[in-house]
């Protein structure tokens, strides 16, 4: 596929002796939304962390825009500029204001002027619906607001692909929807997204491709309605029926 933004081919990852990803394949084309789900420890985080090279895979190929990732610092730097990441624990910088959180990357890594970076930051704060919190510190915000700031921080780097690792799992239930709403809007605007989540309503709404993983492997993938209504594997059916009960 020529327009694959991210391509994982036969990727293997070991943590010491533990085989966390086994010949993993995944293709994400421009504008596609992929949702990854699966039981705890199945390797979902490992997939997204390999895509942005927070973890180095030992075997197989990962291509971003057709260019293979290597350990070369230049290659890693390219990843950082094309792939954004939103963490479960937000990982905002507590010593900086919201605005400073958002402008740090554009100013230091991209060389934007402070003025341009702040304009961009305010634009994306608007987009995640918290334009008036710019001068607060993260700790003064609710969890849902913090996660939206984290999303805005990633957007400020204007990435081609945005990775989410369980973005709503650390949130109180009443704050989950405000974060999901923002993510749905991003999806509607055509952002290429890889989302690890157990929010099946979200998956149903936006996912073009849903990947069910277990024990470091893709057990099944396809359109969400396909997996929900007609899963081929027993493991997938069981897992989905469990989380859909909640």
């Amino acid at each position: 596929m020529p327009d694959a933004v991210v391509e994982l081919v036969g990727v293997n990852k070991w943590y010491g002796a533990f085989h966390a990803l086994k010949d993993f394949n995944l293709e994400i084309s421009s504008g596609e939304r992929v949702v990854i789900c699966g039981p705890s420890g199945s390797g979902k985080s490992t997939v997204v962390r390999c895509i942005n090279q927070l973890e180095r895979h030992q075997k197989g190929t990962i291509r971003i825009d057709g260019v293979e990732l290597t350990e070369d610092p230049k290659s890693v730097a390219r990843i950082r500029s094309e792939v954004g990441m939103v963490f479960q624990q937000f990982n905002l910088f507590p010593h900086l204001t919201v605005l400073e959180n958002l402008t740090l990357g554009p100013i230091k890594a991209r060389g934007l002027s402070r003025k341009d970076a702040e304009a961009r930051a305010r634009h994306y704060l608007e987009r995640v619906h918290i334009p008036d919190q710019a001068d607060k510190h993260p700790i003064q915000l609710s969890g849902g607001q913090q996660q939206r700031v984290a999303i805005a921080r990633s957007l400020c780097m204007e990435p081609r692909v945005l990775l989410f690792d369980e973005p709503t799992s650390a949130l109180d239930p009443e704050m989950i929807s405000e974060v999901l709403d923002v993510m749905v809007e991003l999806a509607e605007d055509g952002m290429t997204m890889v989302v690890v989540t157990h929010e099946m309503g979200f998956a149903r709404k936006v996912a073009d491709n849903m990947v069910f993983m277990d024990a470091g492997e893709t057990v099944e993938q396809g359109k969400p309605e396909h997996l929900f209504t007609n899963p081929r594997s027993e493991r997938c059916r069981k897992f989905l029926s469990q989380i859909l009960q909640h």
């Binding site: 990441m85 740090l104 780097m157």
Partner: peptide, 14 residues
């Protein structure tokens, strides 16, 4: 926390 340096990496800081 390790997440801080990971977040710094993902916004392109060396």
């Amino acid at each position: 926390a390790r997440g801080q340096s990971e977040a710094a990496q993902t916004i392109g800081l060396n």
